[in-house]
Design a protein around this nucleic acid. Structure first.
Lengths: 332, 332
DNA sequence: ATTCAGAATGAAAGCGCTTCCAGTTCTGGG
DNA sequence: CCCAGAACTGGAAGCGCTTTCATTCTGAAT
């Protein structure tokens, strides 16, 4: 593998000059540049990124820490992040935290030790305080899907309240009054916010919120099914179910089928996220779109702009959910 | 950030000794080691991975190139790879090739230029020849989901023929004789092999293979639906459809519903891959399990063993598919 | 006490690049 | 034609670590 030395020797110029053309510096004469480029081509020179990183103190890598690597949400997210980074000549070092505090912290340390220039974090087990402290450190980062007021400019998140509101409002508009709600763990910020929006829509429509129509799941399919069964078992009366994500919605629909209920004739469903598989379901699931790609793109651009000083764009921190109407809601 | 110099000064030993304890070398006295460890703790020393990489010519990073980052298949794959690598103190640099030759080659170059110690490749646009040539280079790699005889020890793949066979055989055992087949692009190796298995099962059962019962899709949902519609339009007679992946199966099921057909009463379906969403479908999809996780794990272990000289395990290159019975096949 | 293999240590030379600084060569305006 | 200032170039230090080689130190065997 040719080094910069050989290039400089062949081109008959100094190391510095080679380095300058490599980095597209100003103040290099056309002639020098030509000679260097020719030599590079002849030797099939490939810069050693490691050496560059060491000398320049910049690894050109961005660490991405997500709670899980599989699942529709993260697939879409990573896909966008990788694309944007690669277009910018940077690369993604990816790691998973498995929604466990210890594991997430380890992942963080791992990425920091790897000299990532910046981090994109999607974590839920690590505390606000820890992240605020981390923000004082030297590695800049953005946080996805979470709002921490002390470092709000680094946060990119959905207007969850609006999402919750839209789902309930839609059902109400379609004539539903008895609406069950299968939520995620209510300790989580986004879950809580969605519920606020839900209640707001009910209130606006003068529908009182009933505690027995709510079930707390864990965002996994099975808990959607459990939730539905539990509602039935408790003799709750409802004509529609809102779920805090699409996985649980799919589980809840299965629960409805276990009870021989027709969807949407006997029970309507709304999900959240607009995962790719919602179109595969039968009937296709009406859901709230979560613009993951937009959010992932924006956060990556933030890094390109603030860390790598590339193009200036207008940064938006909050994203807007949207109702996607499909076939799982009955108009009464 | 403390460096090895400061540690050596504080501990009162030489650089070399610090480096030795850092790398767990033999020939370091207990006393020296203690002093060094104490100094490291006091200074909260974190080794600079970049500098280590430069000096040791080993980046501790493994490049992963997949055709797409989203989708259930890759999510599962990446999840396993990342876990195994991180357990071994290595990390994954991830990139996508988008099933486009130019783009895949660029991804490859990108990863090689990034000084990855090894690569895990899931590519389909790059030619065998190119990969064989690449294998002469200095960066070792493994190939997933593809068999190239010249470098077969680096290939990890499914017994696709068996998969195709199992699906058809199951339907035949359930009394089906007219079996439609929605395949992927037949130019792809795995697709072709599956079809061979399919035909083998038919032949064994003395069922003749009919060209008009086959449709060539592109592995995307929509093409499953198109396939189904096309079969109907061509007045093909069949009681069951086998699809080369679960996405197309979901599309085909939708096609069946468009024609008001009951599943499985009027038409049975079998998919391929056993993606997570097959359980969400209605009825739940009978499919062929593709042990992605096993394959991903094995390929990572191969790298740990052959590149990083870690633990010895027995390497298996070929993986076995298995029928997963659910609710989408009618017993006649 | 003597010998000597092997263990323990340190000095120093890199790894391949960036970047500061100083020196040299061009400009063009007077 | 001169000279200030800008454009260009090269030398050399340094990024933080690994690794080779030579040297010194052990302690078991004689």
């Amino acid at each position: 593998m040719a080094t910069i030395y050989e290039v400089s020797a062949l081109a008959g110029v100094s190391l510095s000059s080679v380095s300058r053309v490599l980095n597209d510096h100003e103040h290099v004469s056309k002639k020098t540049k030509q000679k260097v480029v020719a030599a590079m081509n002849e030797l099939d020179y490939r810069p050693n990124t490691i050496a560059r990183s060491l000398a320049s103190n910049c690894s050109n890598s961005v660490g991405v820490l997500v709670s899980e690597l599989h699942g529709p949400f993260f697939g879409a997210m990573l896909s966008t992040i990788e694309l944007e980074l690669r277009n910018a000549g940077k690369h993604a070092v990816i790691t998973a935290g498995h929604s466990d505090e210890e594991s997430e912290k380890k992942g963080l340390d791992f990425l920091i030790d790897r000299n990532c220039d910046a981090l994109i974090l999607h974590v839920d087990a690590i505390s606000d305080e820890y992240l605020i402290k981390l923000s004082k450190g030297k590695t800049p980062f953005v946080i996805l899907n979470r709002y921490i007021s002390e470092i709000k400019d680094n946060c990119f998140y959905l207007n969850n309240e609006l999402g919750g509101y839209l789902a309930a409002k839609h059902l109400i508009e379609q004539g539903h009054k008895d609406i069950a709600y299968i939520s995620g763990p209510t300790t989580k910020q986004d879950t809580a916010e969605r519920l606020v929006g839900h209640k707001k829509a009910l209130t606006e429509a003068h529908i009182s919120f009933k505690e027995n129509l709510i079930y707390e799941g864990d965002y996994l399919t099975e808990s959607g099914r459990d939730g539905f069964n539990s509602l039935i078992k408790n003799k709750a009366t409802f004509t529609a179910v809102i779920c805090s994500n699409d996985e649980m919605a799919s589980g809840a629909m299965r629960g409805a089928r276990d009870h021989k209920l027709l969807i949407p004739e006997q029970c309507s469903f709304i999900g959240f996220d607009n995962a790719f598989f919602t179109e595969y379901l039968y009937p296709q699931l009406t859901t709230i779109n979560f613009p993951v790609n937009d959010m992932a793109k924006m956060s990556t651009l933030w890094i390109l702009q603030n860390v790598y000083k590339q193009k200036e764009i207008k940064i938006t921190n909050i994203f807007t959910p949207k109702l996607i109407e499909r076939k799982s809601v009955l108009q009464k």
